[in-house]
Design a protein around this nucleic acid. Structure first.
Lengths: 373, 373
DNA sequence: CCGGTTTATTGAACCGGTTCAATTGGAGGA
DNA sequence: TCCTCCAATTGAACCGGTTCAATAAACCGG
């Protein structure tokens, strides 16, 4: 009994027990139609009796594919899974992975090195999310000689990519607030993922996504003659706490604003609560627009106005592109796809109301937002 | 160039290029200290030049372990990741997996069969969540001869397990509402995960978790002479929509209640919004207590009173138990651990206020909650 | 009864590494 | 000079399957 459990039965055990060759057993499991029904039945019976299961790793090695897709993230999984955005994205990837019978392996830095983790991962390809554009990571990953699809970065034309029109989305968010009469703004920017501990260099300004969104905000504001000073861009982690902290810092610094442009819903939600804790009402005192449109955005208090990006679809498309690249081992040029965004107006934004006169007085206006301020 | 890219270099390429044996190359990568520094350096250089990386699958096969943990769920990943509870749990597992250099593979039913998926998964062990107690799945998984830790079920003493004192948690939730004067209740129960398509049988009443919580609610109510009829238990999926639907059905059916006991925060949040859409105020008209204490619970409107269970810790402990079982290949008895819960009082519950007199009139009371009603 | 197919099965090579006992060469001691 | 010992390196077996060309047996019409 214990001996039985001690060693996992292998294909040769089944073969000898059933009086056939290894090959035949293998065929019985993979191409039963090639065998006589009786043989297949007998082999199956023996296999069941022995409790035999083909060893997945051995099978992978022989077949040269793993039926597994990797989701690559530069953040620790602990922080990634804390972000509803990431979960949503994973849903998208998972939906098509499951449809095609692929498993999902999450790959995050191993002892601070993404490259090392990539080396250890047995997958047929990677969907990479959150990799900063310039990153050598991509370079190193290439060594794995596996197909990879970059999400939110098209910096590597030789790999497939899925992007979202961040700039246009941000533009529409800012314009929405402008249309409501706001003239004094604060941007809540998401901190790029911390570089692995091996990268000694200080965090670069902002990653691709953030800088594209910032550009969108700025373009909209500048179109109405408003310059967004750097002191009005508060950077923090894309968490409830990060959003709260960023808002609090801005409030403490004495900057005046009525419109908050958050680069992530999670930060926006955190900011709402920070604001209310300080006695500011949303949207009466502060209007706030998020980004992403995560499921929770509809259930906050007040429900969040936000820029919807098709997060699940992004994941699904990335997976589709990846599977296509996995299938054709040839070298067709990779695909690049860009998805759109949509402003969802809920209740966290309102026209500036009582302060409208104040704002429309050109001088105060200028004071409030001048670049030197 | 293209030929180079066409075939991935293998260890023998490096060996012959460096003028050493395969073994030496292997050692250079795994036990460099056993080699002379010069040899190691030369081999490393050649390997870099060729772009060689040890093939992860081959390595797994030879070493007989994968450095990967599996998270097993009977639900499709698409639905699992839609549940913040699941993400939180995954965080816990991920935190210890990462700490010990393990990757995370999510395993969900393959073509409707969990057993099939398990067979294909190359992992060193499984953390299983959401498996209904009686399930044959566990039986089948055992065939994989891999260690497994069951979460929320201790029905298999031969496997490790982590449970939470669901009954006590539910008890405290109900008692909280009772203390606030409520006498008419509605329970929002989470639907057990749909059985795989292979299981033809209709969904069983409730899974282990749900029935334990229900028992807790009932015990608390009965201690005050209140019987909870089945018509007061609305079952639906653990989603925002499920919670909303369940509440709406109850409202439509004409059942009267002032206290809602939800078995999941997500359902509770959905229910809050359904209630408010029908013009009912929370907590003035309906008091509502959730279960889990997901991150969002603090940010809903109103903030949710709920039973906190240590979800992350649950995941982390499960992973620890699993790693322990993976390490010792021997047959020490598996560990079983049970974690506690804690009532977190926020603002979705309040004393029944104006209706107190009404409730305290014994006759009406009886009418409202009698088992025949 | 024979050559030509077709069908069921098999042997050997291979996937790409790791492991460990055995070998080699040189340094140190007697 | 010879022997011992140690450090560096290697050969062969192994991990547990899949694959494909080759074989053997059965079948068929002529």
């Amino acid at each position: 009994m214990d001996q039985q459990r001690a060693r996992r039965p292998r294909i040769s055990d089944v073969a000898s027990e059933a009086g056939v060759s290894k090959s035949t057993v293998s065929i019985a499991f993979n191409n039963p139609e090639r065998l006589s029904p009786e043989t297949t039945a007998r082999i199956r019976a023996v296999a069941d009796a022995l409790g035999y299961r083909p060893h997945p790793v051995a099978r992978m090695l022989a077949q040269r594919h793993t039926s597994t897709l990797g989701i690559l993230t530069p953040q620790a999984l602990v922080v990634a899974f804390a972000n509803p955005f990431f979960s949503m994205f994973s849903q998208g990837v998972a939906s098509v992975a499951e449809e095609f019978g692929y498993g999902l392996l999450f790959v995050s830095p191993l002892h601070g090195s993404l490259a090392r983790a990539v080396t250890r991962a047995s997958v047929d390809g990677f969907v990479a999310i959150g990799l900063s554009e310039d990153h050598r990571e991509v370079e190193q990953i290439r060594q794995a000689r596996l197909p990879i699809v970059l999400v939110d970065s098209a910096a590597f034309p030789e790999h497939g990519s899925i992007t979202v029109d961040d700039e246009a989305g941000a533009f529409s968010a800012a314009e929405h607030l402008l249309d409501l009469g706001h003239r004094q703004f604060l941007v809540l920017a998401v901190e790029p993922p911390q570089p692995g501990s091996e990268d000694a260099l200080a965090a670069p300004a902002l990653d691709g996504v953030s800088s594209r969104r910032l550009r969108g905000y700025r373009r909209a504001l500048e179109a109405r003659g408003i310059v967004l000073g750097d002191e009005r861009v508060a950077i923090d982690s894309p968490t409830f706490a990060g959003g709260a902290a960023a808002l609090n810092r801005a409030l403490d610094s004495g900057i005046e604003f009525t419109g908050v442009l958050a680069m992530s819903d999670v930060m926006a939600i955190g900011a709402i609560h920070a604001a209310e804790e300080r006695g500011l009402k949303v949207p009466e005192d502060i209007s706030l627009v998020g980004f992403d449109d995560i499921d929770e955005a509809e259930h906050t208090c007040p429900p969040l106005t936000t820029v919807r990006q098709p997060v699940r679809e992004k994941g699904a498309e990335a997976a589709r592109l990846l599977l296509a690249a996995v299938d054709r081992r040839d070298f067709e040029p990779p695909e690049h796809r860009r998805l759109g965004t949509q402003l969802i107006t809920r209740e966290s934004t309102t026209s500036i109301g009582p302060r409208v006169e104040e704002v429309t007085r050109p001088i105060e206006d200028k004071q409030g937002i001048g670049p030197a301020n």
